[in-house]
């Protein structure tokens, strides 16, 4: 019987190739307004639906990670939860950066009117720069990892 940490390592390695790489996801944080491009399969046809809203929460970790996106449709709040690593989630685009001081923005559910909007994140702040630099490094690393993986079997599709 393997030890707990070994078991966790086995579980992680089983799903490792299903996780989205860093360069497949944009630099985003809770509070941002994002476009989620989600593949909808109807019978044999496939189309992409875009859901735009405020990214209000991130839950779970690893392959189970999900994001909650909230938008207002016809004066009614709508929240959708997307499994971040699902192949059906085609792309995420950041539309607007928002300034959030907590990890879960559930308080937005009680806001009405203008107060629903979040402040734009102030650019040029030290932590933002550090964040961007860190993200750029991770993207470069993950791209490099993929390129070398593709170089070995030439049939890699990207």
């Amino acid at each position: 019987m393997s030890q707990l940490k070994d078991r966790q390592a086995i579980l992680n390695s089983v799903v490792a190739d299903q996780l989205k790489k860093d360069h497949e996801l944009p630099m985003m944080s809770v509070g941002d307004t994002i476009d989620v491009h989600y593949r909808i399969i109807e019978g044999t046809k496939e189309r992409i639906q875009v859901f735009q809203g405020v990214y209000i929460a991130r839950n779970h970790s690893g392959i189970n990670e999900t994001i909650t996106v909230r938008r207002i449709v016809a004066n009614e709040g709508v929240e959708r939860i997307f499994p971040l690593h699902s192949p059906r989630l085609a792309k995420i685009e950041v539309v607007r950066r928002g300034d959030a001081r907590r990890a879960k923005l559930y308080y937005l559910r009680d806001r009405i009117g203008k107060s629903r909007r979040l402040r734009d994140q102030r650019r040029g702040l030290q932590h933002v720069e550090a964040w961007e630099a860190g993200h750029a490094d991770r993207v470069a690393a993950s791209k490099a990892g993929q390129d070398s993986a593709e170089a070995a079997p030439p049939t890699g599709d990207e």
């Binding site: 086995i10 799903v15 299903q18 399969i41 392959i63 189970n64 192949p87």
Partner: peptide, 19 residues
């Protein structure tokens, strides 16, 4: 238990067994 995504995006709950 964990989950497994098929290529068309279906989500299957799976158990990993050391056999």
């Amino acid at each position: 238990m964990t989950r497994y995504f098929t290529e068309d995006g279906r989500n299957i709950p799976v158990t990993v067994i050391e056999a």
